[in-house]
Design a protein around this nucleic acid. Structure first.
Lengths: 185, 185
DNA sequence: TTTTCATGAGACAATAGTGTCTCATTTGAA
DNA sequence: TTCAAATGAGACACTATTGTCTCATGAAAA
């Protein structure tokens, strides 16, 4: 029972950081501590430096994405349905994880490995879609991944701007992806 | 002949800023001045503050985009060809203008107006594509704009990563856009 | 009650960036 | 050559942020 009950301070800081950094990626540690309702000293007790905090946020984000995806595709067996569902469940996470796209993790081998793994999983998924005859096999997988990622981004922004609901954005994104890269008829 | 020959210092600073800020958006004014080959004091003689410099860069970027687009579509009369060519000529500008996407211009009315105008022009272009029967009229124009912008972004990144040439990325982007949002057959 | 531990408040030093200013030098034009 | 404008170098004050440290307090566990 090492981690059964959290001190709540650490979680509060992480939540405050996610909230604040998405509004202003250069928010200070003072602001974060303040929103978390803890002193700045306490923040430094849990996270030795700003870099340490950001790294924890990135790891948290990776885990949250893995969790939400794994949970959503439990009973699905076709690549097609998996790709469709992932698109839908990841859209709402943009508000929470978006700011991480602006951070540089080039010096962190641990995180780079995790990012590489996620990219590889996406790659495998896209190869699966090709096998199922949904995607044009003559299109480079690297381009397919780019489009998949950026359409997801477009969907998130569309929702953020109030142009569509998550459900609508999800449908539009999927339709655009499939028609855009699908097997020529 | 007020502006016939530039002092070159101002231009050198702007060029250095474009180069450096795309590598590191938080590069200091010292670094920028240094790369431009001028003293920090001189930089402040041309740009009263960092904000002032960034704003000039944004205005420059808008003008450069307008120029390259206007120049490319001079003799074209179909919306379809225009949309296709714009995609191609804007890809290389990503390396130069990309960092501006990370800046916040919410407090600058002048720039906000320019951005709004560019978005409106894109909107008009997409409506034109609908009229020419190239795009599905049942798809919201706001979504079409999102996809157009993000596919452009995907193409730039694809080139930046060395996955494709500009020409290949341009073809893939156009194909993906047209098939993705085109009229159902 | 006593003890232990997390915490808040705040002082502190170090660092970095910014904007201003001065002065000596250079450059180019008259 | 002479003069005026542009420049480089650098000092200066100001601000913000960060990370460390100490100390008193309050709450929970023993």
């Amino acid at each position: 029972m090492k981690n059964s009950i959290r001190p709540s301070s650490e979680d509060a800081i992480i939540e405050a950081a996610f909230t604040l950094l998405n509004k202003d990626p250069s928010a200070s540690l003072s602001q974060i501590a303040s929103l978390a309702g803890v002193g700045r000293a306490t923040l430094h007790r849990y996270f030795s430096s700003r870099e340490d905090l950001i790294k924890t946020l990135a790891q948290t984000a990776i885990r949250e994405m893995d969790d939400v995806v794994e949970n959503a595709i439990q009973d699905i067996d076709s690549y097609t349905e998996v790709a469709k569902i992932i698109l839908k469940v990841l859209i709402p996470l943009g508000d929470r994880h978006g700011f991480l796209a602006l951070e540089a993790f080039e010096h962190d081998e641990e995180l780079k490995t995790e990012f590489k793994r996620q990219k590889q999983e996406t790659s495998d998924l896209m190869e699966g879609l090709k096998e199922e005859g949904l995607l044009d096999i003559s299109i480079p997988t690297s381009w397919i991944i780019q489009v998949y990622d950026h359409i997801l981004f477009a969907a998130w922004e569309s929702v953020k701007n109030g142009e569509t609901t998550v459900s609508q954005a999800s449908d539009l994104a999927w339709r655009t992806f499939i028609n855009g890269l699908g097997k020529p008829t």
